[in-house]
């Protein structure tokens, strides 16, 4: 599968309060959350983000709280994937669990700029900056994460396993 979109560029240590401020956490409705996505980092983002757009950022993306509302908001805003130098631990886990594709590549994250057209081959982790004609290789996804993706997220994975246990 290939993802293709225009880049929104952010810096290092983008925290979960920037991705979805706590004042909006009295709902878990993805559509509503998407309306505030990245608001404190770039107030124009929620109104201007287009389906397929890609978020690129520096190190430690998603640091801070465990709120799954953060990857949910990004996904519901139509963002196809996030490319970052590194991801905070809980965000990393949450993104896989809910099926938001994320790619770790310090080189790609450093090079891409706002407005670049970028494509990502999800299977191989190859990131291509179409505007600059450069390619990068994302760090490999751990095998267990691949199983979760293949199952369609953690809940489907667990549901499948529980069913097998019951019929055993």
């Amino acid at each position: 599968m290939e993802l293709k979109g225009t880049v929104w560029k952010f810096g290092d240590d983008v925290d979960t309060d920037a991705i979805i401020p706590a004042r909006y956490l009295n709902t878990s409705d993805p559509k509503e959350l998407a309306g505030y996505c990245m608001e404190d980092a770039d107030p124009a983002f929620p109104a201007r983000v287009r389906p397929g757009d890609i978020i690129a950022a520096g190190k430690n993306f998603g640091c801070g709280s465990s709120r799954e509302h953060a990857p949910i908001a990004i996904k519901a805003a139509g963002v196809s994937c996030v490319i970052a130098g590194s991801f905070a631990r809980i965000f990393y886990r949450n993104a896989f669990n809910i099926g938001l594709p994320i790619f770790e590549s310090p080189e790609a994250a450093a090079d891409v700029e706002l407005g670049d057209e970028v494509s990502v081959d999800v299977n191989t982790g190859t990131i291509t900056n179409l505007s600059k004609g450069k390619t990068y290789r994302a760090n490999p996804v751990p095998p267990f994460m691949q199983q979760i993706i293949a199952a369609g997220g953690l809940i489907s994975y667990i549901a499948e396993r529980m069913k097998r246990q019951c019929t055993k």
């Binding site: 465990s66 709120r67 799954e68 809980i90 886990r93 949450n94 669990n97 809910i98 751990p142 267990f144 997220g153 953690l154 809940i155 667990i158 396993r161 529980m162």
Partner: peptide, 20 residues
């Protein structure tokens, strides 16, 4: 350690989780 809501859901069902 902290996790997200989906991990909470899975653990409430199974009593287990995976960790590196």
């Amino acid at each position: 350690t902290g996790v997200g809501s989906t991990d909470l859901a899975a653990t409430m069902a199974t009593g287990e989780t995976w960790l590196k």
